[in-house]
């Protein structure tokens, strides 16, 4: 049992029933996006691998708490996000991880967000790739998390709000900030 593409239905029900093949298919589908998310968020290979492993184990252990099988992906990323937060606190980044709302975040003009191309559709030229990752690394972790979730699985903003545990308005604001940081890089090449 494999899930090769995102369009194929996920065997979530079979996994809930304890089918190892179903779990294998689910983990195979999400292992690389989860790792990329954790790695870009925590900037450490081994910690990112630990996060993936802990996410898998927690998913198996707590799958009964999954309410909507169609949202298995966001549920899984929610676990991963919590693990990233815990690892980030252990590494002494507590001050940065706990910054949930910047004072002026909610006062931003959210109308501007819809005018920007969606991060999932951003096209990066080969010569821009290094700068792309530099800019990504330069974002605050809270902003980077929103942008990464949009990158790796094209989660809707409502699900990103659930994954990161912040209000929808905050997610929009963070995405707006992230777009501004990338505007100069991607502006001329973006569709």
């Amino acid at each position: 049992m494999t899930v090769e593409t995102e369009d194929e239905p996920l065997p979530v029900a079979a996994a809930r029933a304890g089918d190892p093949a179903a779990w294998d298919a689910l983990f195979r589908r999400y292992q690389l996006p989860l790792y990329a998310y954790a790695r870009e968020l925590l900037r450490d290979d081994q910690t990112a691998l630990d996060v993936v492993q802990e996410t898998f184990l927690n998913a198996v252990r707590h799958v009964a708490s999954l309410r909507d099988e169609a949202r298995f992906g966001s549920w899984l990323f929610g676990i991963a996000h919590q693990r990233c937060q815990q690892h980030g606190r252990r590494r002494g980044r507590e001050a940065r991880w706990l910054v949930v709302d910047l004072p002026d975040e909610e006062r931003e003009d959210h109308a501007a967000v819809s005018e920007e191309p969606d991060p999932h559709d951003w096209l990066v030229r080969r010569e821009q790739e290094a700068e792309f990752f530099e800019r990504l690394a330069g974002l605050p972790e809270a902003h980077r998390a929103v942008l990464l979730l949009r990158f790796v699985d094209d989660f809707p903003l409502e699900e990103i709000a659930v994954i990161t545990g912040v209000p929808l308005g905050t997610v929009k604001s963070r995405l707006h900030h992230a777009k501004i940081a990338f505007r100069r890089l991607l502006g001329p090449a973006s569709p």
Binding site: A36, H120, D121, W122, L123, A189
Partner: peptide, 10 residues
Amino acid sequence: MKTSRELLLA
């Protein structure tokens, strides 16, 4: 050119 997702996963 690659999409941001392709770039990240690659």
